[in-house]
Amino acid sequence: MAHNIFFNEQTGQHSFFSVKEKAWHNLGLVVTEYPTSREAIQFAGLDYEVCKLPNIHRLADGITEIVSDNSFFTYRTDNNIVLGDKLSADYEVVQNAEAFTFFDSIVGGDGILYETAGALGNGERIFITAKLPSYIKVGSDDVIEKYIFLTTSHDGSGSITAAFTPVRIVCQNTLNAALRNCSNVVRIRHTANAQEKLKEAHKIMGIANKLSEELDGIFNRWAKVRITDKDILKLIQQALAPSKEVLKAVQTGGELSTVFNNVCNDAFMYAMTSPTQQTETTKGTLFGAYNAVTGYFQNVRQYKDEESKLESILFGTTMQKTQAAFNLCSAFAKNGNEVLQLN
């Protein structure tokens, strides 16, 4: 599987660090202790600044140049690599150090544990994952740790995005879920007041506290709700349906494509055979059914590269499907298997 981690020729290092375990093709620096934000920036090779300058247009005579007042580009000051082009005048650069300042501020600088960080492409996009000090416990020993993930770009391709992401430690499944009227994501535009908004984005901590408290109760209830193998397959089929037409076919017993059946069978096989699905909290339980979907996407499905996988799990199609599974499990817990019955 390909990777897109920036390789810095000046230092001879990939711009990535992780605590204790290597990730993404064994690249980057592995440290044994959780670093401070200043250390994390250096370990991940993110200690560069980004500048924005106006584009210069050369006319047909090959001599005359016009400095644009509405078209700009960004570049790294350490190696002069251009990161973004044709940016608007109101695009505001948010430096890498400011992204880490966001993490330090939301918990007052105490208890945040920087676990991974890195730069993608030429450094036009960065990401940070930080672990919060508390955790969710399902049953007697099934632990779900709580993370905040942040990504931002320097090329104008997207907003600053911070998300709360619970991760089941036994299998590293990201159990993303948005409850009714409560998203797990904060998005901030790269506008002139982006830095101010970044300072205010500590509300992600409020989201983390609210979601983790509610998910603790939900997952523990689901771990006590029994579900048959037949209903697990039905739940998987409905959660993974790629369109309304396929979902209708699943619900009415219509014909399904070979490709879709293979995907569902792979997820069902994971539910039935993975060691992480044979624990007290997951074997034959609704919590296990939800983990079957999340586990399929993280441990079975193939992605173009690690960046695509990360994007899909946190914000893309995978997130949508795991949310569908979460909603189905919520309905099952309330109404039983009648929500899965074929019409």
Rank of each mutant, 00 (worst) to 15 (best):
I112Q: 02
L113T: 05
S243W: 09
E214D: 10
F260H: 06
L256D: 05
L215G: 12
A2P: 14
P133W: 04
S68P: 14
I169H: 06
N291D: 02
D155L: 01
A271G: 07
V82I: 11
R76W: 02
P242F: 05
I227P: 02
V300H: 10
T74F: 01
I81S: 02
M269A: 13
G217R: 14
G109N: 14
V82D: 00
K248D: 15
K86Y: 11
L198I: 05
D142P: 07
E280T: 14
S312K: 06
D85Q: 13
H25T: 02
S308H: 14
I144A: 01
I188N: 01
S312Y: 08
G295H: 00
Q341S: 08
C171S: 04
N8S: 08
A2F: 13
E92K: 13
P54D: 11
N265V: 11
G111V: 14
T11C: 06
S140G: 13
E245L: 15
N193L: 14
V185R: 03
C51H: 09
I136M: 11
S330H: 09
P35K: 10
L132T: 00
V263F: 12
Y135A: 07
G123L: 00
T116M: 13
I128A: 00
D90K: 10
Q341D: 06
I188D: 07
L87Y: 03
N70K: 13
S308A: 09
I148M: 05
T252E: 15
N80P: 01
D155Q: 00
T36C: 12
A119V: 01
A208W: 02
Y290H: 05
K304F: 05
N96W: 01
K203E: 06
A331K: 14
K230I: 08
T317K: 15
T151H: 04
F103P: 00
Y303M: 04
H3A: 05
I204E: 03
I144G: 00
F219A: 09
